[in-house]
Design a protein around this nucleic acid. Structure first.
Lengths: 344, 344
DNA sequence: GTTAGCACTCATATTAATTGAGTGCTAACG
DNA sequence: CGTTAGCACTCAATTAATATGAGTGCTAAC
């Protein structure tokens, strides 16, 4: 059952208006505000049809109409108009990314902040996820008599470091040698690649420093383990307070609660990653605490191997066009920056 | 004008009750709930006196009484009873600190989280602050053909790293040599200590890799600069939503706003650091957006050189005893952990 | 000095009345 | 036949009127 042009335009007016005002909208208002050239009575008839079709609904008999999830779905699928980012916005994003390109954690943090700022919705970003992180380089850095810093660079160029406590730490020269030994044996491997033979080799090549082998391998395993966990960062959660939908403190609290729970976020992010940008409207997500919220997420990938996603969450009445535009802009710019920096 | 025992006990009852219920309390309730052995009429007379003295006040003529800032001041200065942390709480804190001792940033983050969790108030932690960070160790770590990772360890054992982009990066051997050169020239210095002579020396000792000197020094300067900035981390800001004082969304929003502004936080933290634990009640702080809030902060120091503070913020009616207990516990445990790890 | 008793105050809760945005239906119109 | 004017009807939200009750201060008696 297709919508005729008039119904289509009326629905469009209702949704646009509701996204802006959060108030149910009536026939008379539509007639006055959106010059469609028909009377309010006609609009009433059409609205009655739209309601039967399930695109809009009435909070109560004497109120105006409000878009339903199905209505929003139609909207995002076929009537929403995206706008490209302004030059300013693009510049802002690019500058941020270039500044933080080498520190993946800051980059995520800053990206989340940027998205929250540009959309005015709470934003979340999941770190690039690689199934099996490989060791690209390990190196000791002297710290003091009883500890050595171990720096680990992964194949995704993430840099991690952790102190290894030892009864007494070797000097700079020795550490340099040991660093070389470590690299010769471990470079290019995942934690699971490390065999008994490798460990044996390390023990013998470390010579009188063999006592270091196990602590060091432990730290490496920990660091990679931590790297293999998906990290999720949120920003601007307080933005939710600006929407009348959450003027009831208990609802606001529920959102805060939800966005603080890792499990919840992972569930959100986990859903299929096929599309470039995915929109989950209202009841389409089946997480109890997030009923009445919509989620927009953009899946990005990195070197064709690590993937992650960036998204925002808001009331079902959120400004989809705006949010999608920003996320789209981020995707484009991430790609651009990565290419410029790694390709150039 | 000293309070007699009876007035003292009545005031105590009022404050304790108000901290718990957030409702003005009347004479009859005090008589019934807190068996002081006197009638409500007597209590009324005493309360009238207490009001004249400025310890309590009446929101309106026919309401009960509420403690004034002056009342709270008396309370925290002389009638509040601290309780030691439970064994569980202590264990929780110590475990957290030991786990994160070597990664100062995580440690701060986790400390803030812990304080927020134990007190149920928003918490903030400022990073240990050293006026002039000294270079303890610098080292190159190979990354790829066009970049080298620079790892910097400061005298506070903070580890920082940043990629240096170069037209073509030297190999491992060379980097090791250059690392040594760098250390010989820079160890123990602050950024301001670096003289023209030092730079000249680097240029000549770097030989054909002299082109690296300026980029490297730039990165070092940046890292130390960033380190010299005070960082402040907050956690559990949403806890504020649990208090009826902030059930008005706009007030909650103001707090969120305030705690997101670095400047504001620095002002809070900046105030005199003489006392071990400092309590700022209501109007005693003169930051407009935080009117009606109290702040409790604990100043810690680290190796007698770096200092910072940990605090919570809440309604003036906050549970001072509880919050002070937790902060006191943290101070004790920080010291204990530091001594155990560095001394042992 | 303490307390019972009473008149008084005033925020809050309750109820009632009013308003007005919005609907659906019907009948007339081009 | 599709469109529209008109009208009766609905119901959340606003306003006004009223009642309630927790609390006070004061006075007079114990």
């Amino acid at each position: 059952m297709l919508l005729n042009d008039r119904k289509y335009r009326i629905l469009e007016a209702i949704i646009n208006d509701y996204i802006q005002t959060a108030e149910p909208i009536g026939s008379r208002t539509i007639a006055k505000k959106y010059g469609l050239g028909i009377s309010s009575a006609t609009i009433r008839n059409e609205m009655s049809d739209l309601e039967d079709m399930g695109f809009i609904l009435q909070p109560h008999t004497s109120a105006g109409r409000v878009p339903s999830d199905k209505g929003y779905r139609l909207y995002v699928d076929s009537m929403m108009r995206q706008r490209p980012l302004t030059e300013e916005e693009t510049l802002f994003l690019q500058r941020m990314m270039i500044n933080n390109f080498n520190q993946i954690e800051y980059m995520m943090q800053e990206t989340a902040k940027a998205v929250a700022l540009l959309t005015n919705y709470p934003a979340f970003v999941s770190e690039p996820y690689i199934k099996k992180t490989k060791i690209r380089h390990v190196q000791f850095v002297p710290l003091d008599e009883k500890s050595v810093l171990l720096v680990l660079v992964t194949d995704a160029k993430a840099v991690k470091n952790q102190t290894v406590s030892l009864p007494n730490a070797p000097d700079f020269e020795t550490l340099t040698k040991l660093s070389r030994v470590l690299n010769q044996n471990l470079e290019g491997q995942t934690v699971h690649d490390i065999t008994r033979e490798t460990v044996d080799a390390l023990f013998s090549q470390f010579g009188k420093h063999a006592y270091m082998v196990m602590p060091v391998l432990g730290v490496i395993a920990d660091l990679i383990q931590a790297e293999d966990d998906v990290r999720i960062i949120t920003s601007g959660v307080k933005n939710i307070l600006a929407f009348p939908e959450f003027s009831d403190i208990s609802k606001a609290k529920a959102i805060f609660q939800a966005l603080e729970e890792r499990e919840m976020l992972i569930t959100i992010l986990g859903q299929e990653q096929s599309e470039r940008i995915q929109i989950i409207i209202g009841e389409e997500n089946n997480l109890e605490p997030l009923r009445g919220c919509s989620i927009i997420k953009a899946n990005y990938s990195f070197d064709n191997q690590s993937t992650g996603c960036i998204g925002v969450i808001g009331p079902t009445r959120m400004d989809y066009a705006q949010a999608v535009s920003v996320l789209e802009g981020i995707l484009i710019n991430i790609t651009a920056v990565i290419e410029a920096l790694s390709g150039g």
